[in-house]
Amino acid sequence: MRRAYFKNNWVAALVVTPQLLIIFIFFYWPTSQALYWAFTLEQPWGGGNEWVGFENFRYLLSDDRYWHSVWVSVVYAVCTTALAMGMALILALFADRQLRGYKGVRIGLIWPYAVAAPAIGLAFRFIFNPSAGVASYLNYAFPDFWNPVMNGDHALTMVIIAGAWKQVSYSFIFFLAGLQSIPRSLTEASAMDGARVMRRMWDIQLPLITPTVFFLVIINLTDSFTDSFGIVSTMTSGGPARATNLMVYKIYEDGFRGLDYSGAAAQSIILMLLVVALTFFQFKYVERRVHYS
């Protein structure tokens, strides 16, 4: 542990205060407000909030629309995570061979990280548009083949593809870093023993990057639950017929369009619990069970 400290604690207080103030105002206070609203109901004619206990949650959990939103979110999260990570893993394994053109390939696989969600949403909405662009040709050949504007399953597929496209680069960067941190002596030793490239991938590299895999599963799932607003909002606005009404988007709709603060707060709390549970799971089990050495 560190031995040399500065003794002037006034300076310490001074330097940490700005951050603590901002965190208090914009993190801890809103989070506690969410709890307060979730357990109270605003009176229609003013006069403060009335304590209603778990009533908001009970109402929410008996609402088919909410469960539908949860279901859609889970499908979205699992599909985008699987698609993005699968693709990123294969690409990282082969990019790590560092054949000719490696640097170009790497930059080519990294830049999509920087594209804003609404830009991705708009681009894919155009590409998958049933009456313009590429998809229109398919519809011309096979009528009603593809119509995300009317068909909920098509819309969800489209949103998932856009979401996965957004996530690939992030996973790729981490997989590549994980692969490159594997000691070279290990792969060299197995090469000496006669293991060819594919065999080394399967028996040496894949097992050694399982910690990265688990880390990315959690991060990607969390991201899909929380960071999907930009894509849904620009592509489908939650439609058609709520087919793409992900949890984050529903919170926004209920809170800011429907002005149902208590309902939106209760939904926020459930989403918070979900995110915290995922993070906790990662700390508690994943980091402990998977070892490098």
Binding site: W29, P30, A34, T226, I251, Y252, S268
Partner: peptide, 19 residues
């Protein structure tokens, strides 16, 4: 400070707006 990593702005958006 570390705990703030857990909950992104999106999940506490309604009360943050009120603040």
């Amino acid at each position: 400070v570390f705990i703030t990593l857990m909950l992104p702005l999106e999940v506490r958006i309604v009360p943050t707006y009120a603040v």
